[in-house]
């Protein structure tokens, strides 16, 4: 996984913190914002920067040993690009300790991404007032 430099991380932290609080869609219509689900040991398949919403595709192995494929919705491509987040966060093959989000009300393998944690402890947080890239303890050691 390509690691960001410290200035790059700082910039991302600031830029993510500036993401608008108001999205175009009322998220609670499509996702159950009262609860979160978490998937462990996920592998990134694709990080798509598109409109009307970006998408993180990933797989993980459930408790029964079955591989599941899921998608997590992000802000729009224009929002992500305008804030310098055009595809540098996730790459295919990245290993994620966990992926957390609000589940779709439809019951599909689909969520609204809240956060994802990398193996080095770095957290990409897309929800709430502390949105941003929070470097983990292992990230500095690898730089």
């Amino acid at each position: 996984m390509k690691l960001l430099t410290t200035p790059g991380l700082s910039a991302l932290l600031v830029l993510l913190a500036c993401l608008p609080a108001a999205a175009h869609h009322n998220g609670a219509t499509y996702f159950d914002t009262s609860t979160s689900i978490e998937h462990s040991d996920a592998t990134v398949v694709e990080y798509a920067i598109v409109n009307p919403h970006g998408r993180l595709h990933y797989t993980f192995t459930d408790a029964e040993g079955n591989e599941q494929e899921w998608s997590a919705e992000l802000a729009s491509a224009n929002n992500l690009r305008r804030r310098g987040l055009g595809g540098e966060i996730f790459k295919p093959g990245d290993q994620l300790v966990s992926v957390t989000g609000n589940p779709s009300r439809s019951g599909a393998n689909f969520m609204r991404l809240q956060s994802a944690e990398f193996a080095d402890g770095t957290v990409a947080n897309f929800s709430g007032p502390n949105r941003g890239i929070i470097p983990g303890p292992g990230r500095d050691a690898q730089q």
Binding site: V50, N51, H53
Partner: peptide, 14 residues
């Protein structure tokens, strides 16, 4: 003012 291309498959209707 940027281009706003849109792909329906990413509409999030799932």
């Amino acid at each position: 003012i940027w281009e706003y291309e849109c792909i329906p498959e990413f509409g999030g209707i799932e």
